[in-house]
């Protein structure tokens, strides 16, 4: 369980998060959704200690992210940042290999090699194993990064808008793989999503944010409604229900 309490955060003097307290249950996929600038990515990066907390507290399985040694934290929680950084000049196998770094600190043992092989297989990357990252398509590259995070072998996996720049086939395939992670490997996935329809289709829990404040939280089927769309996204999109699936009008 991830517990964030009383998070208030400012960026260049502008408030980004206003007293947000939220609990993210262990297991399943939790999606952070909300309009642009609502503070989703900031909240995720505070949980992942990519930025120092200005106030409040974040506990992951009872570990305080501010005070727990970086190495221990990296064996509990993995983060895939938004891919704005330059693609490193690595092959797929080398990149995935770095996922084991928190465990071996530079001297991989046989167990680490096995984990890397497993990750490459799980994410269907065997054919690209020795290809440099910058020769892959956007979807393949994103899969390689997720494989690295998978190889890190942490209970929690955090992803910041991993569907950016992916087409529908790559997006669906990535979301299905993440679902597999939670079902078959017992991982907890926390993901920032831009498109609420992906959240409705794949998330077990949805956390909404508007203007730095927490909105409705719960299963997509419970909380997504015309009123919620109006409150969170300020748009009058209608909601369609097909069986137990929820669809938001585009």
């Amino acid at each position: 369980m991830i517990t964030a309490s009383n998070i208030t955060h400012q960026h260049n003097g502008k408030p980004v998060l206003k007293d947000v307290s939220v609990q993210i249950p262990g297991g399943g996929i939790t999606a952070l959704v909300g309009p642009n600038g609502a503070g989703k990515s900031t909240l995720l990066s505070l949980i992942a200690r990519l930025q120092p907390l200005q106030s409040g507290q974040v506990l992951v399985n009872g570990l305080d992210v501010q005070t727990t040694p970086a190495r221990n934290m990296a064996r509990t929680l993995a983060i895939l940042p938004q891919t704005t950084e330059v693609t490193p000049r690595l092959t797929v196998a080398e990149l995935v290999g770095f996922g084991r770094y928190p465990h071996h600190r530079g001297r991989p043992g046989p167990q680490d090699v096995a984990k890397v092989d497993e990750a490459i297989e799980t994410f269907d990357l065997t054919d690209f194993r020795d290809r440099p990252l910058d020769s892959l398509s956007g979807g393949q590259r994103q899969r390689a990064f997720v494989a690295m995070v998978f190889a890190q072998d942490t209970e929690y996996v955090l992803l910041d808008e991993p569907l950016n720049n992916l087409d529908i086939a790559a997006s669906r395939s990535l979301m299905q793989t993440l679902q597999g992670l939670t079902r078959d490997h017992g991982r907890t996935v926390v993901i920032v999503l831009h498109d609420i329809n992906y959240a409705c289709a794949y998330a077990d829990t949805m956390i909404t944010l508007t203007d730095g404040r927490l909105g409705p939280c719960g299963t997509p089927g419970d909380i997504v409604s015309d009123a919620m769309m109006q409150q969170v996204f300020r748009t009058d999109a209608r909601i369609l229900r097909v069986g137990d699936r929820v669809l938001v009008e585009a």
Binding site: A70, M73, A74, E85, P88, F98, G99, P102, G106, V149
Partner: peptide
């Protein structure tokens, strides 16, 4: 610190994720 340098080269955010400062 050669192994730490390997990780630092991946950029700030990824190295935090992998437990480096």
């Amino acid at each position: 610190m050669r192994f730490r340098l390997d990780v630092l080269m991946l950029g700030r955010n990824i190295s935090i994720g992998l437990g480096e400062n």
